[in-house]
Every structure is written in C-alpha cells, then in structure tokens.
C-alpha cells in the first residue's frame, strides 16, 4: 500500500523530467548547439559515468565539509535560539542584529574570512555556519513562541519553574518547527560548502566546477550541478528520516497535511 503510494507520487515528476530531457536532447541535436555552450543530456550522462571515480574523490571532500559545517551551524543555531529565548531581553536586543547579519553578502564576507583565518578548514566551516544557522534560529524561536497558552498556564498553576516549563513544554513543542529550519539549512549547507570551496581548496565539487568552467567543459559543470542537487536531496531525506524517528506523536492527519 505504502509502496504503491510512493510510486504514485514519484512517477509524475519523473515523467516530466524525462520529457524535459528528451526535448533538451532533441533541441541540442536539431539546432546544432555547440557542446561547450549547452551539452546534451546524453553527453552529460556519459561524462558522469566516465568521470565517476574522479568525481567521487571531490564529492567525498564536499560531503565531509557539508556535514561538519551543517552540524556546527545547526548546533550554533539551536544554542543561539535557546539563549535568546531563555535570557530575558536578549531576543529584543539581538534579533535585529541577526537579521542584519543575514544581509551581509556571503560573497563579500568569504574572502575576508580567508584573509583572517587562512585556507584551512576553519573559514570554510564558518561560511557554512553563517549560511545555515539563521533558518534554524528563526524556526526554533518561532516554535518556542507557539507553546500552547493553556498548557503554559497549567504548568504555572502546578508550580513549574522557568526551566521546567522550557524543558517539558517549550522545547518538545518547538521540535517540529526546529526540523522545518533544519530542512532548509540542510539544503543551504551543500551550497555553502561549494561556495567555501571556490575560495580556496584542493578538492571538492566546488573546485571541480571551477576547473571545468575554465576549460570550457560545460558538461562537467552540469555533472557537478547534478551531484550538488543529489547531495542536497540526500541530506534533506536524512533530516526527514530523523524527524520521523524523533517526532512520533503527531496525529497522522496533520503529518499528511504537512506533506501536501
């Protein structure tokens, strides 16, 4: 039953994708477009297969960087959200600064980080952290505010302390929100890793992309894009899985609605 549902929800986008690929292939061969401008899907697939081992090495490096940056970034995000929520006045003072920090263009900031912290792992992790902690902070803070007022008043009436209210009511209540934030920052973090690699690295999908572009190997650029998309999807899936494991109490109907 479940498998059939999955198949039913998967085939329309897959069919659309296949149709698009066919149109693309036809257009490239019909109009005789040079492959350094737009390679055909067939050619991209060929390159993906033949360059798989080389790509694996680059991807491995990107995956490590992504996971490290994502973990540091989301942990920072959760910690910042908790502190802003628990310390009275902290949120009002720092929330605007948080928003301002998100408007600093990463492309401008990243080279500075290289100047300050060199070409090691640290500046790259900082880049990814900056990219992905913001959605987590916002979503988590939002979740804390959504705590049911009746439950809050119940906790107050039975004499719960501030910390008890946080641990037993606000934190578990904010988990679904927190996961929405994690899903967004998970997909951002792959992009963050690629940008970090552009700024100076020996390996990684970002580096591969730069090399491919400078030698007009457009097919390889497309292969890199496919890898980035696939990695983002896998990370998204893992977060979704973790959410399912941790949040089992949601009524089935509400969970379904969310998926739609």
């Amino acid at each position: 039953m479940k498998k059939r549902q999955l198949a039913a929800s998967l085939w329309p986008p897959l069919a659309a994708l296949a149709l698009l690929a066919i149109l693309w292939q036809l257009a490239v061969s019909l109009f005789g477009i040079a492959s350094w401008i737009l390679p055909s899907p067939g050619r991209i697939a060929q390159e993906a297969v033949s360059g798989f081992t080389r790509m694996q090495e680059h991807a491995g490096s990107t995956i490590r960087l992504t996971l490290l940056g994502f973990s540091v970034g989301s942990c920072t995000g959760i910690a910042v959200a908790c502190l802003l929520h628990v310390i009275p006045g902290a949120k009002r003072a720092l929330y605007p600064l948080l928003i301002v920090s998100q408007n600093i263009p990463m492309i401008a900031l990243a080279p500075l980080l290289m100047i300050w912290f060199g070409f090691g792992l640290l500046p790259k992790v900082i880049v990814i952290t900056l990219v992905c902690f913001f959605p987590v902070v916002i979503a988590t803070l939002d979740g804390f505010l959504q705590a049911d007022p009746v439950m809050r008043s119940y906790m107050n009436m039975i004499g719960a302390t501030r910390i008890q209210i946080f641990r037993k009511l606000e934190w578990p209540g904010a988990l679904p929100s927190l996961f929405s934030g994690l899903k967004i920052s998970g997909t951002y973090s792959v992009m963050g890793a690629v940008i970090a690699e552009w700024l100076g690295s020996e390996k990684g999908i970002g580096v591969y992309m730069l090399l491919a572009r400078s030698s007009f190997r457009t097919d390889r650029v497309f292969v890199a894009i496919v890898w980035i998309v696939a990695l983002s999807l896998v990370l998204f899936g893992l977060i979704l899985l973790l959410e399912r494991l941790l949040i089992r109490w949601k009524p089935a109907s509400a969970a379904n609605k969310e998926r739609e």
């Binding site: 049911d148 009746v150 439950m151 008043s153 119940y154 107050n156 009436m157 039975i158 004499g159 719960a160 037993k168 009511l169 578990p172 209540g173 988990l175 949040i247 109490w249 949601k250």
Partner: peptide, 17 residues
C-alpha cells in the same frame, strides 16, 4: 506557587507525551 493540584478547562494533555 505549586501548592495545589489543578485540572484546567480543556484537558491540555501534552501531545508529545
């Protein structure tokens, strides 16, 4: 605080428990 046991108007059970 904390000297009474209390039952609110709605059950207010915690959904994750």
């Amino acid at each position: 605080k904390g000297l009474i046991s209390y039952m609110p108007q709605s059950a207010a059970l915690f959904p994750w428990r």
